[in-house]
Write a protein that binds this DNA or RNA. Structure first.
Lengths: 218, 218
DNA sequence: CACTGTGAATGCATTCACAGCG
DNA sequence: CGCTGTGAATGCATTCACAGTG
C-alpha cells in the first residue's frame, strides 16, 4: 500500500503532478467516448509514456485499478479532479497584460472548464483600460495589488514585457497572491512562501536549435 | 578535462541545454552593462541556480573560466551562441495559426534577435489569409507542406486548436520539417526522426492548483 | 586567495520485473 | 490469463567538497 489509504501521500514527484492533468484530459476524452475501462498500457500509449510510469504515478495517490481489467474511467477521472484541486472548488486568477499572449490566455477554454476564473485583468495601456475582454473589464495596473486582495486571487499570470514583470510580480505578492506563473523571459524574485513558475517560450526553440545543429553539422 | 577539447561533448543533459539559453540571456545583459567578468556564483544568483550547477553545465562544453576571476563575459557569450546553434546561422520557422497565441509568437522580439526567422505563416481563416503580419503575408493552411519544403523550414510552430493540430503537424512533416513545437493541448504523433515538444499552458496552472490545494486544505 | 573544474556522493525519476489478484 | 501495484535496479541530475590554478 502506498499511503494511509484515504488521505494524501507524502512525496509526489513534481514531474508526476505535471502529468496528472494530461491523464485527466485523456480520461475526459475517453469518458465522452463512452469508454468505461482503460488499462495503463492504453493510457500510456495515448500520452506517449510507459505503462509502468502510469501505474507508478497513480499509485502515489492510492489504488484505483482492478487487476485484469484496468482502471474505471469515470471513477479515476473523478478522483484525479479531486486530487488536482480542480473538483468542486474554483480558483481565482488575475492576469496582468492584455497583449497577444494575455489575450490568448484569456481565450483559452480549458481554464474555465477546469474552474480557473479570471477575476482581475489589468494593463497599463490607457487604450485598453475600461475595455471588456471575455466578460471582464480591464483595470489599470496601478490597482493590481488592491484588486488582488479584494478578489482573493489565488493565482497570478504575468504576461507583460520583461521590463515591467518584476513590478507586476511585487504587486501580486503585495496583494496576497501565493502562486504566480510568469511568461516574461528572465528571473523574478519572490519571497519564500510564494510559488513561482516561469514559462519561457524561447527556451523551447533554442533547445530544438541545439539538437538540430548537432544533426546538421555532422 | 571534460571532452576532446575542441569539439562537442557526447552526453549533455537535456535540462542543461534548456538552461544554456538562460545563461545566454544573462550574459547579454551583463555585456550590455559593460561587465567583463562574472563568477559562477553571481551568474547562479541571478538565475536562481547554484554555483556548482553553473560550473557543471558549462564544463560539458569545455573550460571557459579563469581560476580566481571567473568567466569572461564576452567570450563565454560567443561560445554559448555557437554551441546553441544561434551563431552566424539562422533558422527558418513556420507558424500555423495566427490567433492570439500565434500573434504573440510572431511579435516576440527574442526570436528574431536569436536568428529565428518566420518564413511561412498560415491560417485557415479567409479573413486572415492575405493579410500581412510582422512583415509576412498569411498563406492558406492548405499550402503549408508545399511552402515548408520551398522555404526549407527547420522548425514548425503549431498554434491552432487541438482539433486541427494533428493535421497541421502531418503537413509540416510532409514538408520535411524535423523539429516541431506544439502549443495545442494533447498528444501528437510524429515519425521517429522528427523532434516534437509540446508546451501545455494549462499544465502549469494545474500544477500550481495542486500545491495550493495541499496548503489550503490542511 | 578566489575561483574553476570535476570525481564522488546524494537525491530524484524512470524502468524492470514479478508477486498477487480478480 | 491480463493487468495492477510495488520493491529493487537503473539511469539522470544536482550537489558536495576539494585539489588545482592563475
Amino acid at each position: 500500500m502506498t499511503n494511509g489509504g484515504n488521505g494524501q501521500p507524502r512525496q509526489v514527484p513534481d514531474a508526476c503532478v505535471a502529468r496528472l492533468s494530461l491523464y485527466l484530459r485523456e480520461l475526459s476524452r475517453l469518458s465522452s467516448k463512452r469508454v468505461s475501462f482503460v488499462s495503463s498500457r492504453r493510457l500510456a500509449e495515448q500520452l506517449g509514456l510507459t505503462d509502468a510510469q502510469v501505474r507508478r504515478d497513480l499509485s502515489y495517490f492510492g489504488q484505483f485499478g482492478t487487476s485484469g481489467r484496468g482502471y474505471e474511467v469515470r471513477r479515476l477521472h473523478d478522483r484525479l479532479t479531486a486530487i488536482l484541486g480542480v473538483s468542486g472548488r474554483t480558483w481565482n486568477v488575475a492576469l496582468a497584460g492584455v497583449g497577444n499572449l494575455g489575450s490568448a490566455l484569456l481565450a483559452y477554454r480549458g481554464f474555465q472548464e477546469r474552474g480557473f476564473l479570471f477575476r482581475v485583468v489589468v494593463d497599463t495601456d490607457p487604450q485598453k483600460i475600461g475595455r471588456t475582454v471575455q466578460g471582464i473589464t480591464v483595470a489599470p495596473a496601478s490597482r493590481l495589488a488592491q484588486l488582488a486582495r479584494e478578489q482573493r486571487i489565488h493565482i497570478g499570470l504575468i504576461a507583460v514585457p520583461v521590463s515591467a514583470a518584476q513590478a507586476v510580480c511585487d504587486q501580486l505578492v503585495a496583494g496576497g497572491v501565493k502562486a504566480i506563473v510568469n511568461f516574461a523571459p528572465g528571473r523574478l524574485d519572490v519571497p519564500s512562501g510564494v510559488r513561482l513558475r516561469t514559462v519561457d517560450l524561447a527556451v523551447e526553440l533554442e533547445s530544438l536549435a541545439f539538437h538540430l545543429a548537432r544533426i546538421n553539422n555532422r
